[in-house]
Amino acid sequence: MKDIKFTGDARPYHLFVVESDVALRDMLCGYLERENLIVTPMVDAAEMLRRVHRVRPDLIVLDVGGAIMSGLAACRKLRAEGDRVPIILLAGNSEEIERVVGLEMGADDCLSKPYGHRELLARVRAVLRRTAITPGTPLDSSAFIRIGEYVFDVAARSLSRGNKVRVLNTIEYTMLAELTTNAGIPLSRERLVAVSHLREDAVSLRAVDAAMVRLRRLLEPDPTVPVFIQTVRGHGYVFVPAITKIPA
């Protein structure tokens, strides 16, 4: 099994650490940074939800408590939105129900307090190993997805109609892949920015709208009245057609 290395990578892994206890948070962040991880400390889950689509982390270490919003509620909200960002919950040692509920809500792992930093690091490695896929890539990378008169070839990153093939650029591809993977689920513009750009990129939400204009010109019979990629006012976009997977 391929190991997850934190040293020598061109793009070090970026973690959000959400913990209200200042001393514990500082100690944990210092340890993870010494392990060559990029760490963004946060006071509570509400702050994390405000920032998760602007600066996309590879994994979130999330305390289940919280004065404004609990970590459990934040985990439930992300999963309800279709967000698959990896999450490790930190729960009180005596609160078994929190650990069970957290896993049922879609957390990738749950660790009881008090915990050793080396154990948490091992859990981080394990979760990253299980979830290390390119953002925006559909789970079935061999799929052919019909969109109207076009066929979206996931592996080839292209759209084809008859003998004509159009290879998508990275932004168009990752956005279309994210939308088709989450068919019927409205995705925010912030999330589409996060999956289609590097963490270092400074991108405005208009970049999403511009890419959607290009995709609609390719896919829609009438781009001014979109059928396949529809706008969700005040939120983002949703992919709505019935998807037919064509046998490879």
Rank of each mutant, 00 (worst) to 15 (best):
R189W: 00
L32W: 09
Y237V: 01
N169A: 06
V18S: 08
R50S: 14
V17S: 03
I133A: 08
G66Y: 05
D201P: 02
P247S: 09
D109F: 11
R161Q: 15
F144A: 10
K245C: 01
E81Y: 03
L121K: 09
E19D: 08
R157C: 07
G106C: 07
K5V: 11
G30Q: 13
L49R: 06
G92I: 03
L49N: 01
P86M: 03
D21F: 04
G66Q: 02
C75M: 04
A126H: 09
R233L: 11
A210W: 04
I147A: 01
P86Q: 08
P57Y: 09
G92D: 10
T7I: 08
L24W: 06
A73I: 00
R206T: 12
R25N: 11
I229A: 03
R166G: 00
R79I: 03
G162Q: 10
V39R: 07
R34W: 08
A126E: 11
M27R: 15
M212S: 01
H53S: 13
G92S: 15
V238R: 11
L49M: 14
E104T: 06
A74N: 03
K2C: 00
D140W: 02
S196L: 07
I38D: 09
R56G: 07
G92K: 09
A242I: 13
G92E: 11
E98W: 13
I97V: 14
I97E: 13
T137V: 13
A132V: 01
E95I: 06
A211T: 15
L219H: 04
L28N: 06
V154W: 05
F16I: 05
G82D: 06
R125W: 01
D9P: 00
I133F: 10
E172R: 10
A248S: 12
A122C: 04
Y115F: 15
R199Y: 01
S94M: 09
T224S: 15
D3T: 15
R54H: 12
S196D: 07
R217I: 00
L179H: 12
E98M: 12
